[in-house]
Every structure is written in structure tokens, then in C-alpha cells.
Design a protein around this nucleic acid. Structure first.
Length: 210
DNA sequence: AGCCAGGCCAAGC
DNA sequence: GCTTGGCATGGC
């Protein structure tokens, strides 16, 4: 079973996910970046509440986020949790990237911002700027470990990213869809307590509990 | 009523 | 380089 066959199977089961979800009328690069910071170790439903707050208060823009009082920002993003550090991270990100031409927004550049790690950086690059970086998250590691493709869950981000990128076409739309599909599988079947019987990958998984 | 979520950083080996 | 503890809310 090849990695690209897993993608096909998931696509057959779930259909296209059309990630990353953004609101009409907002800057895609900005909304993806803020969403990526807010969703660090956080349920997306909670992130949606925080983003709704920012939109309702009309502060989801580079200018407004640069000027907003940080205590007010904390209040607005509170539903997303870890709001003290995330407010600082958002401020750091805005300060570093505001007014920068898109060519300057390289992975090394955004990784140098305190609060942006590997996954957040790749989310911004792939979904915000259409650059070919495959995103590795906790679901990706868990799923590939259970499938038997990797032998340890402690594999480094870079190693798993390389394995996946070397085994699927370098295609932005596939990168986007595949990651979204892995999240869908992780949420619905390959949970901490997995639902193996109904899992669409049951027949090719080593850890299944038939 | 716990357990969990689309991680990151700092500190300590 | 790898591991650990802290960070916080709301859904299920």
C-alpha cells in the first residue's frame, strides 16, 4: 500500500474538504495565519468562536491587529484557550509580516517569529500562500504510526514530512486535501480511542481492532 | 464529569 | 539533539 493510495481511499470516503475555511471579504493570508496560531493544540470549534469575535469587532485586518490593545485582543480570542500567549504570538506575527512583500515570507522567516513553529508555519505557507509544504500534525503522526508506515510516534517533524513529500506528487491541491482528509480521519475514526471497525482504512491498517 | 483538541516555548538532560 | 511541564477554553 502506497501513501498515495491512502490519499485516494480517504478522498473516496470523505470527498473533497476544500480547506482552509475562511470568511468572505477577509484577507486569506491573514485569516489563515491567525487561525493557525489560534488552533495550536485547540479544538477548531473554539477557534471559530474567537475568529467570529475578531470579525464582529472588525479587527481582523493588519492595521487593526497592529493597533489593538493586547488586553482587548486577549478578551476576544479567549474561547480559543491559551489566550495570553496566543495574543502575544499574534502581535509578534503582525509586527514581523505587516507590509512585507509576499516574496519575503519564507519558511525560515516566519519560523523566526516567536509563536510560529513547524506546523503553524507550514499551515500558513500552504493554505495562506499556496506554497508546497506538507503539514504534519498530531493526527498525521498517530495515523501513520498505527498504519505501520512509521515505527515510532516520536519521529521528528522533518522526517515524516520528507517521507510523505517523497511519496506523493508535489501538488499544492493534493497537499491541501490530503492534510484535511487526515484531520477528518483523526477526528472521526483514528481518535485516541480509535473506532477501527468503521474506519475506512481498516483493511490496510496494522493496528486495527477487527 | 472527565478527557481531549488541527502546538509552542523554555528548561533540563 | 530529545523529553518534560506549562499554557486554558469549551465541546462531547
Amino acid at each position: 500500500m502506497q501513501i498515495k493510495d491512502i490519499y485516494t481511499k480517504l478522498l473516496d470516503h470523505f470527498g473533497f474538504q476544500k480547506w482552509w475555511p475562511v470568511h468572505k471579504g477577509t484577507d486569506r493570508f491573514l485569516e489563515v495565519s491567525i487561525g493557525a496560531i489560534l488552533t495550536q493544540n485547540t479544538n477548531w470549534k473554539n477557534v471559530e468562536k474567537a475568529i467570529e469575535n475578531l470579525i464582529r469587532e472588525n479587527v481582523l485586518s493588519w492595521d487593526k491587529l497592529e493597533k489593538i490593545d493586547i488586553e482587548k485582543l486577549k478578551k476576544l480570542i479567549k474561547p480559543a484557550g491559551f489566550y495570553n500567549q496566543k495574543a502575544v504570538y499574534i502581535k509578534n506575527f503582525i509586527k514581523a509580516t505587516k507590509g512585507q512583500p509576499k516574496e519575503r515570507i519564507t519558511k525560515d522567516f516566519i519560523l523566526s517569529i516567536k509563536g510560529i513553529g513547524e506546523e503553524t508555519a507550514d499551515s500558513i505557507l500552504l493554505y495562506g500562500l499556496d506554497k508546497p509544504y506538507f503539514i504534519v500534525d498530531a493526527y498525521t503522526k498517530r495515523i501513520f504510526y498505527r498504519l505501520g508506515i512509521i515505527k515510532t510516534k516520536n519521529i521528528s517533524y522533518k522526517k515524516l514530512q520528507d517521507i510523505i513529500q517523497q511519496n506523493i506528487p508535489e501538488d499544492i491541491d493534493i497537499y491541501k486535501e490530503f492534510h484535511a482528509l487526515l484531520v477528518e480521519l483523526g477526528k472521526n475514526y483514528c481518535r485516541k480511542k480509535p473506532l477501527c471497525k468503521e474506519c475506512p482504512l481498516n483493511d490496510i491498517c496494522k493496528k486495527n481492532l477487527k
